[in-house]
Design a protein around this nucleic acid. Structure first.
Length: 308
DNA sequence: TGGCAGGGTCATA
DNA sequence: TATGACCCTGCC
């Protein structure tokens, strides 16, 4: 655990070698953290408002006190985990070594399972700005109103709250065709037919199966829920970017035209119980660095450049 | 300005 | 197991 100290306005984390806000909040795992105009991030998680800023001395967690920091945020940001060791293990792989160098400050947050479930149902065939907008809209319409230092913000709506929303109301929030999935899922969680805490205790294979019983939850969304909120670090969500990067760099090992199943299987073999961490580094690297540079041509272009 | 395509999933064949 | 449809909007 890294050292921290209570300072004016919050808690300061010293020399955080493996904590970079932009990497953490922009690596695709969360939707309610937003970059502030003056720098830093603000977000709402676990029913609380928090600001995270990088300073010369370290990472400043603004708007929290020792009690909340110790009982909530240490766990949420997974500050007890030694990312140095994880990186050392993964960096034996050439591709991962480069991805880690690029996204050196990524951490996997321990998010609320219910919020993660609904957020990633919304993510299907969608774009990140719209996902954020839709989640925010649901919060404002159906979430609990909270105040912090005179500022009003909204918690993520409870299962009960979303279970009583009509399909049209959910569509009005921008959910689109996912509206029916969300309401159906909310009803199941609200009346206890689905128990997320129980699912979290299952093995990765069984939890995946259980989650995929829900409408709107396929393999990718199930893996995201397990990785981002159930501490199942062997889960390896395969989205378009991870698919591209895997097809590009591990083509020889996986064979031509590797499908989703093959990619998932290969990631399990190669990265084992660190597959989830590997996925985060690969996703961020693929989307942020390679995506910006090469767009759709990512695969072949980069391979050619890499070989030279 | 219009048209495309997207953090996938579901239904159908 | 393989296609197409799907809400809607940011972006080219």
């Amino acid at each position: 655990m890294q050292e921290y100290r209570v300072v004016e306005g919050g808690v300061l984390l010293f020399s955080p070698a493996h904590f970079e806000p932009v990497h953490i909040f922009d690596c695709g795992q969360c939707f309610r953290w937003h970059q502030k105009p003056g720098g830093g991030y603000s977000g709402i998680a676990l029913g609380r408002f928090l600001e995270v800023e990088k300073t010369d001395e370290g990472i400043l967690f603004k708007g929290t006190d020792r009690a909340d920091f110790e009982s909530i945020w240490i766990d949420y940001f997974d500050l007890g985990r030694d990312y140095g060791r994880i990186k050392d293990e993964l960096a034996g792989d050439d591709v991962l070594a480069r991805a880690i160098e690029y996204g050196y400050g990524i951490r996997i947050l321990k998010q609320d399972a219910w919020e993660t479930l609904i957020s990633f149902i919304i993510s299907a065939n969608n774009r990140i700005p719209r996902i954020k907008k839709t989640v925010e809209s649901l919060c404002q319409c159906y979430g609990r109103r909270l105040e912090h230092e005179g500022r009003v913000y909204y918690d993520f709506p409870s299962p009960d709250a979303l279970a009583s929303v009509s399909e049209q109301q959910a569509r009005d929030c921008g959910c689109g065709f996912r509206a029916a999935y969300i309401i159906d899922t909310a009803k199941r969680v609200a009346d206890g037919r689905i128990d997320l805490q129980l699912i979290a205790k299952l093995s990765t294979v069984d939890a995946r199966k259980a989650l995929m019983e829900l409408r709107g939850v396929g393999p990718k969304v199930a893996d995201c829920i397990m990785l981002y909120s159930m501490q199942k670090y062997d889960a390896f969500p395969v989205d378009v970017w991870v698919k591209k990067v895997m097809e590009c760099f591990y083509k020889d090992q996986m064979g031509d035209n590797a499908g989703l199943k093959r990619i998932t299987q290969y990631a399990g073999e190669r990265f084992g119980n660190l597959a989830g961490f590997a996925q985060q580094y690969l996703f961020y690297y693929a989307r942020d660095f390679l995506g910006r540079r090469f767009g759709k041509e990512l695969g072949d272009n980069y391979v050619n450049m890499y070989k030279k």
